[in-house]
């Protein structure tokens, strides 16, 4: 079965990005596919490569990057939510005249169309949030 996953809550807030990660891992282990993970609202903050959590804390961004690499997952960050919160890839940084970018490996920035497409393509969409 194909799952689509939406993450609406930022990392280290409550638990939503952790639950979403554990759900994704279990779905993949169970032989399911994940058509896309869509990070929306404060959830976009998961995708910064500049976060430095304490070593003994959970490494939320690194976990997602590793899972995406292992299973070729499509991790999409909502562009409007990202720009409000200062999350830029190289293209957007150049286009907006900013001096840096901060998006982590395995994530890409795109629009709400990707959320709609995920909803159409996935058999089930599961939302995690605040």
């Amino acid at each position: 079965m194909k799952f689509g996953i939406v993450v609406n809550e930022g990392p280290y807030t409550h638990q939503a990005s952790d639950t979403a990660y554990n759900f994704a891992k279990a779905a993949l282990a169970g032989g399911h596919d994940i058509s896309r993970v869509f990070f929306y609202h404060d959830g976009v903050n998961v995708g910064t490569r500049l976060s430095i959590p304490p070593q003994d804390d959970r490494q939320i961004q690194e976990q997602w990057t590793a899972l995406a690499k292992e299973h070729d997952l499509d991790l999409v960050i909502c562009i409007a939510a990202a720009q409000r919160r200062g999350l830029l890839d190289e293209n957007e940084a150049t286009r907006q005249g900013k001096d840096a970018n901060n998006i982590a490996d395995g994530f890409r920035i795109s629009g709400l169309g990707q959320l709609i497409e995920m909803g159409i393509q996935a058999d089930r969409t599961v939302t995690f949030g605040d």
Partner: peptide, 20 residues
Amino acid sequence: VDYAGFVDLAATHDRTQSWL
């Protein structure tokens, strides 16, 4: 249920509604 059980529940029901 564990996380695998959560996935099974999502798969065996027709849809999921998160009460956020």
